[in-house]
Amino acid sequence: MAGATTLHLGGDQATRFESRAATRETPLVKWLILGTALSFFTIFLLMPLIAVFIEALRKGWETYATALIDPDALSALRLTLLAAVIALPLNLVFGVCAAWAIAKFEFRGKHFLITLIDLPFSVSPVIAGLIYVLVFGAQGWFGPWLSEHDVKIIFAVPGIVLATVFVTFPFIARELIPLMQAQGKEEEEAAIVLGANGLQTFWHVTLPNIKWGLLYGVILTNARAMGEFGAVSVVSGHIRGETNTLPLHVEILYNEYQFAAAFAVASLLALLALVTLGIKTWVEHRAAVAYRNSQDDAS
């Protein structure tokens, strides 16, 4: 969460550190550290990823394709994308508002708001799901009222969207707050003195300055929204073709011993994740460039 930019800052310095004899470590230490990191990476990250694809294709392309175009799988994909598509704009608006308020204004209850934003991080997703069951479920607070008006939230699509929104709540706000705090409010003040109104200031001054951080937050939100299991699992009810998301569908297939199909769907999720990662890396790179420029600006 430290921000897209911080990751890239070490780059130049690390090279300089390594190229100087006075600060260089012995080859043994270097290879020991590198070896540990690489073997960990291979065993715990790379091998499982490869295993997913190998297992998925074990019974040939045909089984793989069948698993993917299975109506239940397609409906799970649709639901996953739907949840992400709804959760994203909601969290985008909320995240920008919260970050703007926290970074640019002083008000009572600011720390409480920051703590509140972190809540979805600290609470287990299962509990998050459970909260919605307790509030909106048949036996919950609003349960009777909802069933009277024929509104179904739990064990239906709205519940899944709600749970997704909840777990992805902090990503954008958390990404933007340090960025906006670091940028200060002088540019906004300059804009206001020059006669710009609030909306113009946000649109022409604030937004261009945070766009890379914002995009990074959006990507993280998207990745989490598509991959969420715990919270969604509690509120979903696992109705095939209706309330199953991709991760839930993988679990069902696996529990039914359809390993090839399970891995095929899992590989689809993995692909989505890889694409997201690719975009994320690109955004990070752009953010680092933008950050360097703004650093020049400050010097």
Binding site: E187, E189, V193, L194, G195, A196, P208, D297, A298
Partner: peptide, 28 residues
């Protein structure tokens, strides 16, 4: 503030970093 018609110059310039010099001056 925006109706007071004051010009304000900040210690750290507060130029809009994503705009060219021209756009900065044209902003108001």
């Amino acid at each position: 503030v925006r109706d007071r018609q004051v010009g304000f110059v900040f210690q750290h310039y507060a130029l809009f970093r994503h705009m060219t010099v021209f756009d900065n001056v044209a902003f108001g």
